[in-house]
Nucleic acid binder design. Structure first.
Lengths: 337, 337
DNA sequence: CAAGTTTGCTCAATCGATGGTGCAAAGTTG
DNA sequence: CAACTTTGCACCATCGATTGAGCAAACTTG
């Protein structure tokens, strides 16, 4: 079976080992195992022999050596803030699937919304010779783009836009308007005609800002004034959303625009503490979709972002190296509950 | 700034480029940039000069070249079935965090519960010289272990056990017993004393089998017979769980042990179609935790697996290369709703 | 100041796969 | 059968970083 000396040395089988066993050269082995043997005029007989021996020995090419020599790496990198929600989870899954279908090697890493981690991960991916880095929901996308540019790596912003690279994002404004209108309508049905609350996200965040604008514009169009203290943006965090809600004085009825499912977790935990009457007169909707949250009684609707379309667009940019300076907006789908 | 010739050639800066700019040797540059310069007696002066130039040029080491030369890769691989639930999402997140904290480079890839994809991903990770492969919820863990063994890569099974490598899994039996008991108790409160249904997972799956055994044992201990058609194991799929539920004849009251959150999605969709009376007399619990699902009215409790403990154990095995032949069981936590 | 030590650096082999180039041997053509 | 083409393969430089070995210059010691 596999050579004992190699096993004992703890080293892996190389093309040189296979060459020795097949009584041929390393270059023949290499070309046979990477599929370029026809072009290099290796006989079918030798190819079969090498293939068989390689299989028997459990040969596995050293990707480092191969990549070092080759011009392209076929590695595509992605950073993602979290895996704790459907949105980013699905982005990661689909990114991997599309990459594989194209013969690329996807490396996804989650960076916990921490700027330092994002930078570290980006540097690592660049060092790994990734050909492209998709920065999803990055806190400082332009910094990452700068790193990529210095290394000649294509960078694409997803979910959150940057100024230095192409950005593919949802139509946050449109989605927010639709959701706001829906929640207002549903509130009217229970006799509440006041301003909604906006909960979740952070002020410095582009998506939060745009969604908030949509939220305010719809109120304005309906002639409803939004008091300042109706806007609570304590970050993307269940705990902080819950605290923010608890800090409000109790109200008879209320409607909430929840920005992100992670914030919804906090809102929902807070609502568990309400008495039945208050809960009966509570309505909310959420930007981002979750199948279980969609079934909660007070939930009137969720905005689902079009992930397939966003990724399709991103890969299209990889192919064509198109570089529009304006973010590409992908419409969302409002799913009433 | 950065050398124009390099830019034009589309190639990245190497230690040789830096060496030329700093009027020194590549080996000096290498040792300075990888931190081994003190050991190699490079002067602080030269080190500072090299560091400055490297920074100015935006140098990024070619990890492939570095790894080729080095003995250890520090790469640790993990395959995960899906990112669409909290359980696997959290496993991936925590695996990455722990790896980074240990100076390792984590590469996680999701394989959609497809055996062919699992094998492909494992081969790729081995080819990248991963030092260890953690196979999470793999459909054929022993096959992956065989691949790893041939390449001298440590393999560890997580979530689902295998025979060929160490396995770290939850105490599925204990968790299932507790959950079953809880659902039965809650059903009694609404006057239903019959057998529960078991929904989700697949017959060939170890975890499904063990959980089902716990489920049956508790029924048996209480003297409740479980009809064969109460066990529905159509796979880990929301659609198939929903179909399975729809195929049942309507009942006055019922209790369900739902195996996995993805199956719960199907069950919950099905329950939306019930009339109010039937829904009033429906109780279920789920093996695996989801914060939103925990708030659904008919949900009586969810089993949360102890991910931190499982990963801690896995990394402990990486360190010590301990190789117990029996799976290591990690207790779960039942979270009543 | 001669002998020995330390400091500070460079040289060159190496990791494993790739692919351009070269060169026999076999096959073809006139 | 000489000249030419095709087939089938091996040789070796190369990718970029690492590291053992070696060596001059500076410094120390008696």
């Amino acid at each position: 079976m596999a050579e004992d000396s190699r096993i004992l040395a703890g080293k892996r089988t190389t093309i040189y080992d296979i060459a020795r066993l097949a009584e041929t050269s390393a270059s023949a082995v290499s070309s046979v195992l990477n599929g370029s043997w026809q072009k290099r005029r290796i006989s079918k007989r030798l190819a079969a022999k090498i293939t068989e021996i390689a299989e028997r020995e459990g040969y596995s090419a050293n990707a480092q050596a191969s990549l070092l020599r080759r011009a392209r790496s076929n590695i595509v990198g992605m950073i993602v803030p979290k895996y704790d929600n459907r949105y980013f989870g699905s982005i990661a899954e689909q990114f991997e699937a599309i990459s594989r279908a194209r013969g690329l090697f996807p490396v996804v890493t989650c960076t916990q919304r921490e700027p330092a981690l994002e930078v570290e991960a980006a540097k690592e991916l660049i060092s790994f010779q990734a050909e492209c880095l998709i920065a999803t929901g990055a806190t400082d996308p332009d910094h990452l783009t700068a790193l990529c540019e210095a290394a000649g790596v294509l960078s694409i912003n997803l979910d959150l836009p940057g100024n230095a690279a192409v950005s593919v994002i949802s139509d946050n404004y449109g989605g927010a308007r639709e959701l706001t209108a829906l929640i207002l309508d549903r509130c009217r049905e229970i006799g509440y005609e006041g301003a909604l609350h906006f909960v979740g996200g952070r002020p410095s965040d582009h998506n939060t800002a745009v969604r908030l604008r949509g939220f305010l514009d719809v109120h304005h169009a309906r002639g409803i004034a939004v008091p300042e203290d109706h806007v609570l943006v304590p970050g993307y965090s269940a705990d902080r959303a819950e605290q923010a809600m608890k800090s409000l004085s109790p109200r008879d009825a209320m409607g909430i625009f929840v920005n992100s499912t992670i914030s919804l977790e906090g809102v929902v935990r807070w609502s568990q503490g309400l008495n039945d009457a208050a809960r009966q007169r509570l309505r909310y909707g959420c930007f981002d979709y979750d199948p279980f949250a969609a079934l909660l009684p007070s939930n009137v609707g969720m905005v689902q972002q079009n992930i397939s379309k966003m990724l399709e667009t991103a890969f299209d940019i990889m192919d064509t190296r198109r570089h529009p300076s304006e973010p590409i907006l992908v419409p969302c789908v409002l799913r009433p509950c």
